[in-house]
C-alpha cells in the first residue's frame, strides 16, 4: 500500500508538473551559446557562418552514452524588422545534425541530416564543435529579396525534443534541461 501511495504521489507531481510547465517554456539553459555569426554575399547568394559553444549536461550526456541519439537543430529565420509591430519572417530554414555514440568504434558520429554526410569523432567535444559550426551555409538568393530594406538573420541552435525517444520526450516537456536551446542570435543580413 505504501508503494501504491508513493506511486500515486509521483503520478500527482508528474501531472502537476506537466500542467504547470506547459505555458512556461523554461528559459534556455546557458549550455548552448551562439558566440558569433555573420552573413556574407558571394555570387548573388547570401551565406552564413556561425559558431556556437555547445555543452551537454549530465542527463543528455549520459543519454548519449547509453545509445540515445540526439538531434541538433539550427533554426534560421530571415527577418524584416517592422519597427512597432512584430517582425516579419521572410524565410525560415533549419539544418539538423544527429549525434550518436558508437560503442564498437568508441566514436561519436555526426550525421548531417540535410546532406546525409557522416563524420565520426574520437571525442564528444570534437563532435559538438562540428555541430556548433556552420560554414558557408547558403541562406537565400539575393534576387529573392527586395532591395533597400534592412534585413536580419535570427538564429539559434537547440536539441529537438520531438526527436527524443518517447519516454524522454515526456520528461523533456516537463524539464527544460532535456531540451537545451540557445537564445536567438541576431545578425545583419545587409
Amino acid at each position: 500500500m505504501n508503494l501504491e501511495v508513493k506511486r500515486q504521489w509521483r503520478l500527482l507531481t508528474l501531472w502537476l508538473g506537466l500542467l504547470f510547465s506547459l505555458g512556461a517554456q523554461a528559459a534556455s539553459a546557458p549550455d548552448f551559446v551562439i558566440s558569433s555569426a555573420h552573413v556574407f554575399e558571394r555570387h548573388q547568394v547570401y551565406y552564413l557562418d556561425a559558431k556556437a559553444k555547445l555543452r551537454l549536461d549530465g542527463n543528455l550526456a549520459s543519454a548519449l552514452q547509453n545509445g540515445v541519439g540526439l538531434v541538433f537543430v539550427w533554426d534560421i529565420r530571415i527577418m524584416r524588422p517592422h519597427g512597432w509591430w512584430f517582425d516579419n519572417t521572410l524565410a525560415s530554414l533549419s539544418t539538423r545534425y544527429r549525434l550518436r555514440y558508437q560503442p564498437l568504434s568508441q566514436r561519436y558520429r555526426v550525421d548531417d541530416l540535410n546532406s546525409g554526410v557522416s563524420h565520426s569523432y574520437w571525442s564528444l567535444s570534437q563532435a559538438l564543435q562540428r555541430i556548433g559550426r556552420l560554414q558557408d551555409f547558403p541562406l537565400i538568393d539575393q534576387s529573392l529579396l527586395l532591395p533597400e530594406r534592412p534585413l536580419f538573420v535570427d538564429l539559434r541552435v537547440r536539441i529537438s525534443a520531438a526527436a527524443l525517444p518517447l519516454p524522454l520526450r515526456i520528461r523533456s516537456y516537463l524539464d527544460a534541461s532535456w531540451r537545451p536551446a540557445s537564445k536567438w542570435f541576431r545578425c545583419d543580413l545587409r
Binding site: 549520459s62 543519454a63 552514452q65 547509453n66 545509445g67 540515445v68 550518436r100 555514440y101 558508437q102 560503442p103 564498437l104 525517444p165 519516454p167 524522454l168 515526456i170 520528461r171
Partner: peptide
C-alpha cells in the same frame, strides 16, 4: 548493444 543500453537507460521514463 545500443538498443539494450537505451532500453536500460529509458527504463524509468518508460
Amino acid at each position: 548493444y545500443n538498443r539494450y543500453r537505451e532500453l536500460v537507460f529509458l527504463r524509468v521514463p518508460l
